[in-house]
Amino acid sequence: MSIEKQEKRQGAALVAPALLWTLGFFAIPFAAMVMMSLAHLEGREIVQGHDLGNYLRIFTDPSLRRGIFVSLEITAVVTVISVLLAWPLAWIIATRVPARWRRMALLLAVLPFWTSYVVRSYSWALVLGEKGVVMNALVGLGLLAEPVQIMATRSATIIGFVHFFVMLLTLTIYSNLIQLSPNYARAAEDLGASRWQVIRLVILPLTLPGVMTGAFLTFVLCIGDYITPQILGGNNELTLPQLIMLQLGRRGDFPMASALSVVLMVIVTLAYAACARWLKMERV
């Protein structure tokens, strides 16, 4: 056997476990989901078929269609706010916090990760309520005449999400920042750049891979999340995952739930395609 053939076989053997894993736990279940999305519910029976009725309904039924837009709007706002908050935080930790305190600062930044996601969301429900800490403080300080409603609104959902995703983004951006040689900034300053110009024209572009990776992860996790909008949003509008759960939990409409899930997958794929050029993990 030639060395080339031997290497090919070794390569195939090394790749095989990952390939089988992907096939067994992604490709086959996904194909099953697509097949299910082409079936439909007749009365309470699932009838196998090959029609696009469920997809047609998603884009013609105002309630289902709105779910897509609600999800996209919330996800876009959360991603933008999280990036705007996480970048300065990561930059401060990477450049302004003394090296011996950095680990502690990072630890504090990601501390909320240690709490259960559900518990954290319910905690926010208590904090954001009309008799919660935030409203009590604002009314007590005289900044508000009376409490305003945050809980059970889209704002509450966004706050809950941002709290979580700022931590995630801080990590990805920090790991990018810490790899940058300080010589880039020094060189720019030597050439007459102000501190702001150094950040805007040198540091920021070099951290784009970290920002985009974190933003993509935020997008994917946020648009597919069911718990936060369910607990904090007050069911006053439904996101795609909530609509999926409604089909499963209430109607037993697995075909429609599958079709909505496929739409969700397509949205995530499009998001990946849009920022694929920056998603090079080795640069993060």
Partner: peptide, 18 residues
């Protein structure tokens, strides 16, 4: 109404005065 909630959410809303 202010919200539409499941059992736990309803209990929390009433208990906290929401």
């Amino acid at each position: 109404s202010k919200q539409v909630s499941d059992v736990v959410g309803s209990q929390t809303a009433l208990a906290t005065g929401e």
